[in-house]
Write a protein that binds this DNA or RNA. Structure first.
Length: 178
DNA sequence: ACGATGATGAAC
DNA sequence: TTCATCATCGTA
């Protein structure tokens, strides 16, 4: 189900929609990283949606701060932060300007887990607030991969048990998930 | 089951 | 200025 003709770089218009829709539709898209002359493209296989100021699992829940400010801005920019003092988390900002939302990219290609993904792609805070575009060195492409709905699993998000009712919402999307 | 490891945000 | 917390992962 791969149409080799199409290869479209996703832009602000794609990301400026309901963050849950974007999270689901990112499955099967390709995360592309260029460092120097080397380019690596990995198919996205796992995402999570963080949706609005009321979402207790979201960094935006306690209002705008220096760290999460990018979440409140325009869609299509990266939000990268360090968690546990160890791992860089890669997010892409979604939905309307002023409404804080983002999608966490948890897995792509053969790499399972957001920390491992960022390590292999050399993603760090330098990419924070950068636009998802070729000149940033990190972008996302639609390469014509079609993911049937039955191959997508929806589950609660990982590592957000503190978020009460919001921890139970099916905001995690996994391609061929368990 | 637990420690690594450091930025962040809230409290003081 | 201090302090608890954390959208994880590798080792035990």
């Amino acid at each position: 189900m791969l149409n080799m003709q199409s290869r479209r770089v996703l832009n602000e218009k794609f990301f400026c929609r309901d963050t849950r829709v974007v999270a689901r539709e990112l499955l099967g898209k390709f995360l592309v990283r260029r460092v120097g002359k080397k380019e690596k493209a990995l198919m996205i296989t796992e995402t999570e949606a963080y949706d609005g100021p009321d979402d207790k699992a979201s960094h935006a829940h306690r209002g705008k701060t220096a760290r999460n400010a990018v979440m409140f801005g325009k869609a299509g920019r990266f939000y990268v932060y360090l968690v546990y003092g160890v791992h860089q988390m890669l997010n892409i900002v979604t939905d309307k300007n002023g409404y804080p939302a983002a999608v966490l990219i948890r897995s792509a290609g053969e790499y399972d887990g957001p920390g491992k993904l960022s390590k292999i792609l050399r993603i760090n805070r330098q990419l924070n607030e950068k636009k998802a575009m070729r000149t940033s060195g990190l972008w996302i492409e639609d390469r014509g991969m079609i993911i049937p709905k039955k191959e997508i699993k929806k589950t609660p998000r990982i590592g957000v048990a503190y978020a009460g009712e919001w921890a139970k919402k099916p905001y995690r999307f996994v391609y061929r998930g368990v």
